[in-house]
Amino acid sequence: MELINFKVGCKTISLKILDILLTERFDNNLTTLPNNNKSFIGVKDYMDIPTPVFDLGIILNNISTEQSNAHILKQLRIWQEKLLNWFNTLQSNLLNSSASISSNDAELQDFILFYKEFNTDNEDLKLTMSRLNEPFQSLLETVKEAISAHNQSDYKQVSALLEKIKRSNLIQLERLFESAKEQITLDYKPIIVFTTKDGLNPHVGLLVDKVEDNIDYKKEDIKPLDKLTEVGFDLDPQTKNMMRGLIKLPQKHSVLIDPSVIFKPTQIEESESEETQAYGLF
C-alpha cells in the first residue's frame, strides 16, 4: 500500500494515498465557527461540501507550526535588539568614560546557548544559526581588546577597534539575523490535505507544513504503538486512536495516521473499534 509522508512541526506523519482526495495551499481563507476545539481552524468548501479543517500541529504537538515560528521570530528579534543595545552601551562607556571598564558579557551567555542548542529540521536555517558563532566570538574578542586599550588610555586604538566591530562583526550578525528570520517566514507554506472515508466525499481537512515524499509499506514495516502508549505516554483518546503505528524511515520514524477516526464521537468509535484498529493494515 502506498503512503504519503507529510511534515508537521518536528514530526513526520503518513497517510494512505487512498485516504487523500486532494492537497491545496492554505491561504488562510477559512470560514471560522464558534467552537471549543483549539485545533479546529475553520471550514473550507471542497466540491461545494463544507469541510472542517483541523491543524494537525496542534493535535500532535500541542502548538501550531505558525505559533512555533512566531515564538522563534520573537526570540531572534529580542536577541538582535539586546545585542545591539549591549554594544551601544559598551561603546558609549568606552568613548566617554575615563573609569576602568571590565568585560561584562555574562548577559550574552544565554545567547550562545540559544544559537548552539537551536534545533530545526530546516537545513538552511540550521546552517545560518551555526554561522552566528564565528562573528559573535570574534566580536567578544575584539571587545576585550578595546576594553584593554581603554584601560591603558589608548583611545585611538579603542576607536579603531570599535569601527572594526561595526564594519565587520555587527554587519555579519545583522545579516545572519535577517537571513534566519527570512528563512523561517519563507519556509512556512502550509497545505490542507483533504481526506476521505469513501474515496469520493471529503471527511476532514488537515493542515500540515509540507509534503515530504511517498513510500510503499509492507506489514513488517508497521510497528504497533501498543507497548509505547501503555508506558508513560499521556495521549488524549482521540490522538491515541488515530495513531496506527510507526514506520521506519532512513533516519527517523513516521507516525501512520487514520484520519477517519479524527473527532469521531466515542459511541461510534466503540461500535466500530474492530474496523478502525485494523485500518486495512493486516
Results as ranks from 00 to 15, higher is better:
106 A>I: 05
18 L>A: 11
60 L>Y: 03
245 G>L: 06
13 I>S: 12
228 L>E: 08
9 G>H: 12
114 F>K: 00
150 H>E: 04
270 E>K: 06
172 Q>F: 09
13 I>E: 15
5 N>T: 09
211 V>R: 15
163 E>K: 15
150 H>Y: 04
141 E>Q: 08
62 N>G: 02
14 S>T: 12
208 V>A: 13
241 N>D: 08
166 K>M: 11
272 E>D: 06
1 M>L: 01
104 N>Y: 01
28 N>V: 09
77 R>W: 04
38 K>D: 10
201 N>G: 02
252 K>G: 05
140 L>A: 02
213 D>I: 03
208 V>E: 14
6 F>W: 07
205 G>D: 06
130 S>E: 08
281 L>K: 12
264 K>N: 04
135 P>I: 03
151 N>Q: 05
145 E>T: 11
277 Q>A: 04
168 S>N: 08
85 N>G: 07
186 L>G: 00
191 I>P: 10
239 T>S: 14
198 D>G: 03
143 V>T: 11
100 S>G: 04
83 L>H: 10
175 R>K: 11
260 S>R: 14
235 L>H: 06
253 H>L: 08
271 S>L: 07
223 K>H: 09
149 A>Q: 05
13 I>C: 12
26 F>C: 06
194 F>Q: 01
246 L>I: 05
171 I>C: 03
16 K>H: 14
165 I>N: 06
90 L>D: 14
262 I>Q: 06
131 R>Q: 08
276 T>F: 12
139 L>E: 02
156 K>I: 05
265 P>H: 15
209 D>N: 14
90 L>V: 14
182 E>D: 05
258 D>E: 15
154 D>H: 07
82 K>H: 05
3 L>I: 02
141 E>L: 11
